[in-house]
Design a protein around this nucleic acid. Structure first.
Lengths: 275, 275
DNA sequence: TGCGCAATGTACGCACAGCGTACACGGAGG
DNA sequence: CCTCCGTGTACGCTGTGCGTACATTGCGCA
């Protein structure tokens, strides 16, 4: 009848915090400078509630008002800085990503798993790749990216199950959408030690990724190289890029081991069908 | 006795939201993976309160626990994405920044004002500049950076007053710390149309910035180029870099004018001595 | 100029969300 | 085995934050 210890029960959830984030995240491309009423409609909260939240966020410096229109301030960008500051791998990897970009002339990225998405945590962008405007903080689906394949391949089976349960939507005509085939690909990745994905996320987008390990040997991130199919072939990547990635991933791991080694395997509690 | 209309009174502030952010931002380089008790000490909240907040943030996906240690998840990086999505200038400027980087071989950045700080909102990093690890979201002081000088030069006098009141700390032996001299420099910037700052933030760090205007002509951001003094002189920048920056700033302004033009001048309400 | 619609601002009293105190528990280290 | 440091839980009260209802403002239009 009672929940497992340490999990927290219903009283251990603060509605106002959830609402604060809901309002903050209601600002997006569809609603860049909403009015109070628009935010109330979008979030489903009463107008006075939204007003209180907005005034609070304004005093904290995250939103600003211009007449009856509200917008985010650059301060929201600062929040992400705390992630980089607390995860040594981001800073450690930065110069290595630049090295890849310099040696290859293409973009290099570092990503980690968050829920059923891949999130870029560091990136050196040489040029814009196709229609994708990828930057730190960008979320991409696991199943159609080389980084996602690598991260899933070395993740707990429960995480893979969650990803599969979330669905493997078809994004291009080459997207792997069959769960069985997807798991086969993960097996391939584990055997080969790298992943190459061609045009499964977007037509013409070609990327390769390898795992990055910490001092304990756990896979804590994926290191990737991305280009356009017009410029290189899968064979090119296998021959010239994968060795570079593997070498750099080893360098990053080596740099990481000089940091206070703390394991990165975390218990994440889902909510509201997050699992 | 009563506050001005539209400002919101004391009852229009939601303590829990403030506390939520306080806990989230308590994760930093000094405390990358704190325990509940450490967060309680750092924030001054009671342990049960911190526990409720952490469990809430965990359910929202922003923090994760590993044993008794807590850490931020990559999801916090996603918050910043909403800023880029709602401020067209970020996306518009990206290819232009790359052009600068390609033409000059050095880093290019776009920044905006937030309170008494400059915040990087877009950046193309070619190589690490000295000890500064600058990325999107990084906050730097206004008075010692070329971008800050440009933004302050075209800002309302009230904002300049606030910056001066916040103090102009000495960061290197060349930092301008005298309010009168600082205001003189801003005057110079308005006259010249650009700012160059040499070693006032960090010894050997050399940068140049120009204003970026929207369709109405308001200055909405600063565009900057940064290098090391060993590689170029102030004279080099004036001769070769400033013309490029001015040209690109014009291109960005032109691209901006094709977007739905909404003014960017916002009313920001401070709190707790924020002003 | 005046009306009227569509916004936001304000007042207010109730409910319960969230608070802290106090205590139980559990594991690592001596 | 005991101690200590840490988290988990219970619980009752406070007062925060809630929504309804009503002013008020401002803009568009005839």
């Amino acid at each position: 009848m009672s929940a497992a210890p340490g999990v927290g029960n219903d009283r251990d959830f603060i509605q106002s915090i959830e609402r604060g984030f809901a309002v903050l995240l209601a600002f997006d491309a569809d609603l860049p400078t909403p009015t109070l009423a628009e935010l109330a409609t979008r979030t489903g909260f009463s107008r006075p509630a939204v007003r209180r939240i907005l005034l609070t966020l304004q005093k904290l410096g995250y939103v600003a008002s211009q007449g009856s229109r509200w917008s985010l301030t650059p301060r929201v960008l600062t929040i992400g800085q705390h992630y980089a500051a607390t995860h040594g791998i981001v800073e450690v990897a930065q110069p290595h990503l630049m090295r890849i970009a310099e040696r290859t002339g293409e973009s290099a990225s570092l990503a980690q798993l968050d829920g059923s998405d891949v999130v870029y945590v560091a990136r050196v962008h040489v040029r814009r790749v196709l229609s994708l405007n990828v930057d730190v903080g960008t979320r991409l689906p696991v199943h159609a990216t080389s980084m996602g394949r690598v991260l899933a391949a070395y993740a707990d089976s429960a995480i893979v199950d969650r990803i599969v349960d979330a669905g493997l939507p078809r994004l291009t005509e080459w997207t792997v959408t069959d769960p069985v085939e997807f798991r086969d690909r993960l097996h391939d990745v584990r055997r080969a030690g790298y992943a190459i994905v061609d045009s499964e996320l977007e037509d013409g987008f070609l990327s390769a990724a390898v795992p990055v390990r910490d001092a304990i040997g756990d896979v804590v991130a994926a290191l990737a190289y991305s280009t356009a199919r017009g410029r290189q072939s899968v064979r090119d990547l296998e021959a010239t890029v994968i060795p570079v990635l593997l070498e750099v991933a080893g360098d990053i791991a080596s740099d990481l081991s000089t940091l206070p080694a703390r394991s990165q395997r975390l218990r994440i509690e889902g909510r509201d069908g997050f699992f």
